[in-house]
Amino acid sequence: MDWGSIHIYLPFLLKGAEMTIYITILSLIISTPLGLLFAAAKMCPWRVISWPTATVINITRGLPMIVVLFYIYFVFPDIGITLTSFEASVIGIAFCFSTYIAEIFRAGIEAVDGGQLEAARAMGMSFSKAMRRVVLPQAFHIALPPYSNTLVMMLKDSALASTIAVTEMTRQGQLIAASTFDNTTVYTLVALLYLLMSLPLMALTKRLEKRQITGK
């Protein structure tokens, strides 16, 4: 391992890390409301809405994310939808994770005692108001630890964007390694930078889980 070259590689990898964080944040912003929408649609009593939604969720969760990215980036142009590699990566990652977030939110909502919704309705609240003020706050509290864990997974899975030439951190590492042949140093740095970004998020997830158990 060539420690003397770290100062040369690090600026390029940090630039890639910025792109990694950018992809992660945008994907989270898109996937969260989309996941909540999917959860609501899947729980809808009308099968004309719930059945197609459940089908989309199950199919997407059953596909490797890299296949979804390839499909969006390489196949969509055949039907007239051309996206940049960055756009395709954000849309693909966000869409895939929205299906997981949908299941997290659905589980959180179903974990809330149904009697609370009935009580709120008996007090004169509309269904939407009861959901917004009574059910969803409790459901979000239940879903928060697994939801925060998806952020860690999203950060790591953003590396898949390198497969469609997005110059995030993994891609930067590949380019540096290809030109210097210093694989050990480059990929060790990449791994350490991912750990530096992931460990605080994992600590936050653990703290939220502990807080949910203790109620403090």
Rank of each mutant, 00 (worst) to 15 (best):
M169Y: 03
D2V: 11
I91K: 07
T82Q: 14
M153T: 15
L13V: 14
Y194F: 14
T24I: 04
E18F: 11
T55A: 15
I30R: 01
Q174K: 15
I142W: 07
P33H: 02
G215N: 09
P77V: 14
T205H: 11
P11A: 05
W51P: 00
G114F: 05
L69H: 03
I8W: 09
F97K: 02
Y9H: 10
M154N: 05
T82Y: 12
W46V: 13
A102I: 07
V67E: 02
A17F: 06
T188Y: 05
Y71V: 12
D78L: 15
L199Q: 12
A159H: 06
V166G: 02
A40G: 13
R171Y: 02
L69A: 03
S162H: 07
L136Y: 05
T24E: 06
W46P: 01
A17R: 00
A130I: 02
V134E: 05
K156D: 05
L204G: 04
Q174W: 02
L204V: 13
C96E: 01
P146Q: 04
A54Q: 09
K216G: 13
P45A: 00
L195M: 15
I91S: 09
A130F: 01
T24G: 00
S50P: 10
I104G: 01
Y147W: 12
P146W: 03
G92V: 06
F74R: 08
A120G: 14
R132K: 14
V166L: 04
S27N: 07
E118H: 10
E209I: 10
A177P: 04
M43F: 08
M202K: 08
Q212C: 00
I8Q: 14
L10M: 12
L195I: 15
I142K: 11
L196G: 04
I79M: 07
Y194L: 02
S50V: 01
R132Y: 11
L34W: 09
S50G: 07
L28K: 03
R133C: 10
T60Y: 00
A159P: 03
E110L: 14
E103Y: 09
I93G: 01
R211C: 07
Q174Y: 09
I66F: 14
I6R: 05
T180E: 06
T214D: 13
L155V: 06
R211H: 15
A94K: 01
P145A: 04
A119Y: 10
S50C: 04
L175S: 13
A143Y: 08
R171D: 01
T84C: 01
E18A: 13
S158A: 14
P77K: 15
T214R: 15
Q174P: 01
R171G: 00
D157E: 14
V190F: 05
A119T: 13
M154D: 00
T163M: 14
V68K: 00
I104C: 04
T163C: 06
R133G: 11
V48S: 13
M169H: 00
Q116P: 12
G114Q: 09
F74G: 03
K129T: 12
T150Y: 03
P77S: 12
S85K: 11
P64V: 09
V48F: 15
A165E: 00
I8G: 07
A139H: 11
Q212L: 15
Y22K: 12
L199G: 02
W46R: 14
K210Y: 10
